[in-house]
Nucleic acid binder design. Structure first.
Lengths: 358, 358
DNA sequence: CTGAAAGCGCTTACAG
DNA sequence: CTGAAAGCGCTTACAG
């Protein structure tokens, strides 16, 4: 049925080994003539090597897993922010001659099965909590190289790639402070003393410290980072924090929901309240007003993640240290000076106007 | 290193075959005692069967491919509309005990390699043009079952699952006609005489026919279905079609771009121009005004696609006939009566108002 | 530069 | 209810 190495070898009148060497590019060991002849036959017959056979015989499968949390009855939990990463990871792997197994994980025990059943050479963990990564043991991981995206887990069995969350939040807070805000709400999912959100919290506070200001802690949390939760938060935000003039949300999708809730409850963004997000989703440019946010370079993140993972897979060396990527502030239309300052400015302007007329 | 069938067999004092039968649930052939003992050992040792070995020995790999077009230097071409499908497909496959290989296809020749190298049992084609699917031959497909999503290709080697595009466009046009519109622009990527967009075009025209109206053909096309192309289309739309009072776009992302272009060039949606999309992306509820659109049941589409594919994979029977899924109109805020009618209505109202006062 | 042999971890008939 | 043998399509040392 299927064309095999042996078929090609028979037709070329050589051993399977020689065909194998040609197919795998180990040309130094075969004469140019033979190479040319074998390649012609391979093309003619449409020979495609069996990856399972190769995986079984060699110690490498050239298969990388992409593990994503999945509530059992739900779909994969790929946040809008993570969607772009999936495609980029596939592309980088394909360029490197690897294949991608996409796997949802409904419960911790499935990780071992996912890693071992196809003898994965490595896996990328996308969207897991640091606590979950901390719990990974040698028994479930085996000898598979693991790289977690957006993780601050200290588990020595894994490495990671993440954005500079601390600096991102620092830039966000600096921007709001420079506009004259001091009463700022920090909106996020609930967080512990480690992880992405905690880093952003620390960066946010650091901006106040460096400005010599004191931040009156205004924390609001959502159960899940969704538009719906953001909206309901936006609806009640100003009654819970009547003095607030700005909100920093740890995700664009949350910020966009907050803007909608704010608008529905009669507040104008940014005239009454400024809103600042994190991620720079495409979506952030489609909503009104366009969202000011912290941008991450997603293609770069995926590229570095894959390269780092493949480096350890191919060298079979120890995991490299975690890598942290730069972020930057993207100013759009959802942030402005707080209402009191704007009014003060207008009065000043009126005064000057009068002077000019005189 | 790895725990194998043989390890379990030795420890249990039975043959590999017996362990294999237990692991694969063929319990009828083994005594209850033995089953219980083997299962305990399997759990203790953390035995995970080797999928490559099983794939090589059996005729089935329990691996399904998800093939997606990919420009070489670009990421996977997963449209916002297709993003949701990926996660759903993975979930359905996992529930059925299959694994998912996600593969970008940069050129046609890669399809054969993608299908054969891991001996896929089947594959889902997502985002390919009908012309590309038409060109698939037995040589590249082999005996792999293929299902194309959103395809109208007549290639007998594949089957398909798609939404009722004809009816969707019919509902869209009926809605606009019932609001009083007659000068409607049809915005889409360029299309041939077959395929999703052509179906929508036919459905759109059918609504005019059934209303006994003549549609003054106003076609505008974009190169790619993106927000940016929609925006630039929206910017020039009213100068190219000054009499138009509505636009039907064949994709939400396009419609949302058009709304932005329209707004930038000083037209109000829906007061001046109504806009209607297709897909019902989450995004459609986040923009202002919220987009009226045609909804497809994405989870259902993914679920039916997988079930249909697995049915032919497991029965090894012929491919089933293509399935067409229902769609429905979601009325939101981007459609209203055309300006002249609104004005006429207001005058009428004024007149009535006066009568009431008298 | 080329080859014969063993083995990767399973499943599939075929026997008993 | 259970087992011994062959084989799936490759790669890996080891020889020549």
């Amino acid at each position: 049925m299927r064309v095999t190495l042996k078929d090609i070898a028979d037709e070329a009148g050589v051993s399977m080994m020689t065909v194998s060497n040609v197919v795998n590019g180990k040309r130094a060991r075969v004469s140019p003539d033979t190479i040319e002849r074998i390649q012609r036959i391979v093309a003619e017959r449409g020979y495609v090597p069996s990856a399972s056979a190769r995986s079984l015989a060699a110690k490498s499968s050239r298969l990388i897993g992409l593990l994503v949390p999945a509530a059992d009855e739900d779909s994969l939990m790929i946040s809008p922010h993570n969607v772009a990463i999936v495609g980029q990871i596939e592309r980088e792997l394909r360029k490197g001659g690897y294949h991608l197994l996409l796997r949802g994980i409904a419960e911790p025990a499935e990780v071992a099965e996912a890693l071992q059943s196809w003898s994965l050479d490595g896996a990328v963990l996308l969207g897991f909590l640091d606590e979950e990564i901390d719990r990974l043991t040698p028994r479930t991981i085996g000898k598979v190289s693991l790289l977690a995206i957006d993780s601050y887990s200290a588990n020595p069995l894994t490495t990671g790639v993440r954005s500079d969350d601390f600096t991102g939040a620092l830039l966000a807070a600096r921007h709001l402070i420079s506009l004259g805000h001091s009463e700022i709400v920090f909106a996020s999912p609930s967080f512990s003393s480690v992880g992405v959100v905690h880093q952003r919290y620390e960066g946010f506070r650091a901006a106040f410290a460096e400005a010599g200001m004191e931040w009156r802690e205004r924390l609001v949390t959502v159960e899940t980072t969704t538009h719906a939760q953001g909206r309901s938060l936006g609806l009640r935000l100003m009654s819970e924090h009547p003095d607030a003039t700005a909100v920093f949300a740890t995700a664009d999708i949350l910020a966009i929901g907050i803007m909608e809730g704010l608008a529905e409850s009669g507040f104008s963004v940014p005239a009454d309240v400024s809103v600042l997000g994190f991620d720079d989703l495409d979506l952030s440019r489609y909503v009104t007003p366009k969202l000011t946010t912290i941008a991450q370079d997603i293609p770069q993140k995926a590229q570095i993640a894959v390269r780092q993972l493949l480096a350890t897979v191919e060298s079979r060396e120890h995991l490299t240290d975690p890598i942290t990527l730069d972020v930057r502030l993207i100013e759009r239309d959802s942030t402005a000076s707080p209402p009191v300052l704007v009014r003060a400015g207008l009065e000043e302007q009126d005064a000057r106007g009068q002077r000019d007329v005189e």
